[in-house]
């Protein structure tokens, strides 16, 4: 299987003064400016809060985080790297090396959380669980099989679905704790990961659409069908995985709404229409607000609902450029 991953054939010195696609520079700068390390987050402030969780809740949290570790490891070691040979520009290659490294930072940051909160025995136990859980292994295998496959655009589809959809059954939990004022520093760290994944999904999805432009109408249709098929396959598995993890704490139904909500965003990143209707994407406001503190204001001046006729208050208008 491994022999199918190829290295870029002819490497030329990268010239950042000749840019074919401005998006490469824009995303590179964004990623560099967003750079962070887990050591900067005061995780030890969560030790007391960790002590207030029940044994079931602790077990769930450990499992969710090992599941996320597996996905980040896959994306860092295989996923982002497998996209390099298909890059359209040398700068795109460089962006993928940045993405790959950041995924490794993400994977390592879960270990920082573990070592702060749990015992070696519990950590080992959780990692053992991750190698044995069927649904978790299955989702990694489905994605991995496309990374080793020989279709560059399908690789980008799989990669975007991983970045923008598969992480979210896991991300739900720290947002849930945060909304209850628990493990708030851990949640701060996860928010940094969530921010990175949004840029990754956006960029890989954008490059997918760039690649799609050169394809025949038949092939475009094939790739669209393929995207939805793969999403369904992954979705069914995610539902199983969600029930496995969240049934004991009674959160499965709300997690599934979060899955629908993020599946829509993953499709949009690939340039397709959202699939799940609003009736099944109404994630609990507490979760949305943990994700984005101001999103719950739900600016909808039109419908007259929400906090509507509020003119934005002083929100960091410190930019020099604002002096008209």
């Amino acid at each position: 299987m491994t022999e199918k991953i190829k290295l870029t054939h002819k490497v030329e010195a990268i010239n950042w003064n000749r840019i074919q696609d401005e998006k490469d520079v824009e995303v590179w700068n964004r990623l560099v400016n967003n750079f962070w390390l887990p050591e900067k987050v005061p995780l030890s402030n969560d030790i007391q809060s960790w002590g207030t969780l029940t044994e079931d809740e602790k077990l769930l949290t450990m499992r969710v985080f090992t599941g996320l570790t597996l996905l980040d490891t896959l994306q860092g070691t295989v996923g982002a790297v497998s996209l390099i040979p298909d890059a359209l520009t040398p700068h795109e290659e460089a962006v993928y090396t940045n993405i790959a490294f950041m995924e490794s930072v993400h994977a390592k940051s879960y270990s920082s959380i573990f070592s702060t909160l749990a015992s070696t025995k519990d950590i080992d136990e959780a990692f053992r669980w991750s190698t044995e859980n069927r649904n978790l292994q299955k989702k990694a295998q489905i994605i991995e099989s496309y990374y080793y496959g020989d279709d560059p655009l399908k690789r980008k589809i799989a990669s975007t679905l991983l970045e923008s959809f598969l992480f979210y059954s896991g991300f739900y939990l720290p947002m849930h704790w945060s909304s209850r004022a628990k493990l708030t520093n851990t949640a701060d760290l996860i928010r940094l990961i969530i921010r990175d994944e949004a840029v990754h999904g956006y960029y890989i999805g954008y490059k997918y659409q760039k690649g799609l432009e050169t394809q025949s109408p038949e092939r475009r249709e094939e790739l669209k069908d393929y995207t939805f098929e793969l999403l369904f396959e992954l979705y069914e598995n995610e539902v199983q995985y969600t029930h496995d993890l969240y049934d004991p704490v009674g959160l499965s139904e709300d997690v599934k709404k979060f899955l629908h909500y993020n599946a829509n965003k993953a499709l949009m990143n690939l340039g397709y229409e959202a699939m799940f209707p609003a009736a099944v994407t109404d994630v609990s406001p507490a979760i949305l607000s943990a994700l984005s503190p101001n999103a719950d204001e739900n600016h909808d001046f039109f419908s007259g609902s929400g906090s509507s006729y509020v003119i934005g208050k002083a929100v960091n208008t410190e930019d020099e450029d604002w002096e008209f």
Partner: peptide, 13 residues
């Protein structure tokens, strides 16, 4: 919303 407090920040600014 993945961008947290920066969600739609340009519009708010």
């Amino acid at each position: 919303t993945n961008f947290g407090t920066a969600y739609c920040l340009a519009a708010k600014k």
